[in-house]
Design a protein around this nucleic acid. Structure first.
Lengths: 130, 130
DNA sequence: ATTTTATCGCAACATTGTTGCAAATGATAA
DNA sequence: TTATCATTTGCAACAATGTTGCGATAAAAT
């Protein structure tokens, strides 16, 4: 049985998530960590965190991948069925915890995960008259 | 005013889309074209096709970006509000033209585009008892 | 046929993600 | 506390993907 360890690098990554309101890319995490650990280590930590359902992965329309901490891991069945918002101006991605899409699927599909990302202008950028 | 031209490379790319039932990545398109044109040219053609609303871009959870031809460009307001399905087994991405999510947004967001991708097993792979 | 300019090919570069392996380190039990 | 051992890390090297600049080519309009 593979156990997971609490290393200093992992703790540092989790602290970065804690401080951030928005989802973060690998590069953004790396910048905030400044040389706490290697680039490769961050990739591996993120993989583990996603696997352990501590962090979820979000892919943006532009092809960038971001990560955000889950703040509902107390639920028994843990599905990330909430939406994300991607601002085309400031490029921040935020979780819209309360936005849950409803939809009707054709038969014969087995849905395991959903990724619902809306893009446009976030409240901040909308107010700035852009 | 920038006009767009019909080149042989662009026509070839569109033919590849025509033949394909599923969404295609840059690499997949390149393989099917075998050396009709340069790798860079394909990137630029795809950019233009997306800009002209002839093709839409889909980004998958694994970070891969795929493209599919729009078959509803007759609509006046052209928003890609349909869902896509990404099979975790065969990795094919298909458009679910009839699946349109309904959702309620918080105020102060201006939504311009949505990306709704469901993943799991497609009918083909589901039947294969995987 | 000539002109204009969008498009192309090439080369070089930047970014992002992956892999193998020896060394380091966290967790567990002695 | 120390010994043990599997997990994690750093490094180096590699692979894949996407971008940019620029001279050459070719599509479309006159």
């Amino acid at each position: 049985m593979k156990t997971t360890r609490n290393t200093t690098a992992k703790t540092a990554v989790l602290e970065v998530f804690e401080k951030s309101r928005t989802a973060l890319s690998h590069t953004e995490i790396q910048k905030q960590l400044n040389d706490v650990c290697d680039r490769v280590t961050i990739y591996r930590i993120l993989d583990r965190l996603v696997n352990d359902d501590i962090v979820h992965k979000i892919s943006n329309l532009d092809g960038t991948v971001k990560y955000a901490k889950c703040n509902h891991s107390n639920q028994r069945v843990h599905i990330h069925n909430h939406a994300h918002f991607s601002c085309e101006n400031c490029h921040e991605i935020t979780c819209l915890e309360n936005v849950k899409p409803s939809y009707i699927m054709p038969h014969n599909y087995k849905v395991k995960e959903i990724n619902f990302t809306l893009s446009g202008l976030c409240p901040n950028c909308l107010n700035s008259n852009i």
